[in-house]
Design a protein around this nucleic acid. Structure first.
Ligand SMILES: [Mn+2]
Ligand SMILES: [Mn+2]
Ligand SMILES: [Zn+2]
Ligand SMILES: [Zn+2]
Lengths: 149, 149
DNA sequence: CCAGAAATTGAAATTCACTTTCATGTTATC
DNA sequence: GATAACATGAAAGTGAATTTCAATTTCTGG
């Protein structure tokens, strides 16, 4: 983690950038924070320790991390996009429309079938996203309980 | 098609609405148009025959059709959402990032595997979307050709 | 330590898709 | 055709995201 931040910093400098406290604070919080965070959420979190950090810097830092491959933009159709760290391998999402919980999953079989589909259409895939919306276990149980009294 | 429009009109009236020329024009164009159309695109198309139709009416009509189940909102992350008619059964999309072509596909095996995933997590699915981004056959060929001279 | 050059910051302005408002026009009903 | 309800569209309003720009910070190297 400390390692990661150093590595990213070095990469930024190698590309002609300079270090900065605000950006460092944003990055640290981002990689510590639970994933799938909005710019607004992250800004509030960062400001607990660095109250003067502007929203713009959070926008810029997350865009930068995404460009460098350390973060992913995701969009669950809520109106604001979310970011997740891109340190571990690809996964897809179950999104609870009641409580907002996001469950990550990997399914190699689905991925294989996706490859077949694209091949069948002469399509050369570069990225994909699979999102399943519905009720997480907790919310499903709750609504079932309510239904039965 | 004429049938469809009549049916929708009847449904609107049954719900306390009234007929309207603008809305009729939008609906007709929408169901004739190729799918995956933006509000802006559809507005321009409608205005070829009804120049006075406002963007707002297109927004409202598409929202209405979506609420009534005759249209779907889709979002390929371009900044503006798209609409498609919802007359035939569910499908997913291959989206060419070079030319914008959208290929629709159905894969029951993938859907089955999705069901397994959700079951494994005690998740009750209500909707999902699977989008694969990349190059369509044409664009893939073109870029391959360029690479080889 | 001290310029000076270049990158970074954040407040404010801007953009853009989309929604809301509201005065006016249309449609249905009696 | 009078009346009430609905639909329309121009204009104003929202809200997320981006751009602008003057001020600040970081780095270099004398
Ligand atoms: Mn994730
Ligand atoms: Mn489609
Ligand atoms: Zn839930
Ligand atoms: Zn293409």
């Amino acid at each position: 983690m400390e390692r990661l931040l150093l590595r990213i910093d070095r990469e930024i400098i190698a590309a002609g950038g300079k270090r900065s406290k605000s950006r460092a604070a944003v990055m640290e919080r981002f990689f510590r924070a639970g994933d799938h965070v909005t710019v607004d959420e992250l800004t509030r979190a960062v400001r607990k320790t660095f109250p003067r950090v502007g929203t713009v810097t959070v926008y810029r830092t997350l865009k930068l991390l995404a460009r460098m491959g350390y973060a992913n933009e995701v969009d669950f159709g809520e109106g604001a996009r979310r970011y997740e760290s891109n340190l571990d391998s690809h996964h897809d999402h179950l999104v609870c429309t009641a409580c907002g919980t996001v469950i990550e999953f990997k399914d190699p079989d689905i991925e294989k079938l996706q490859d077949l589909v694209t091949r069948r259409h002469g399509f050369r895939p570069t990225a994909h996203r699979l999102e399943i919306f519905g009720l997480c276990r907790k919310c499903a149980d709750r609504s079932a309980g309510r239904r039965q009294g």
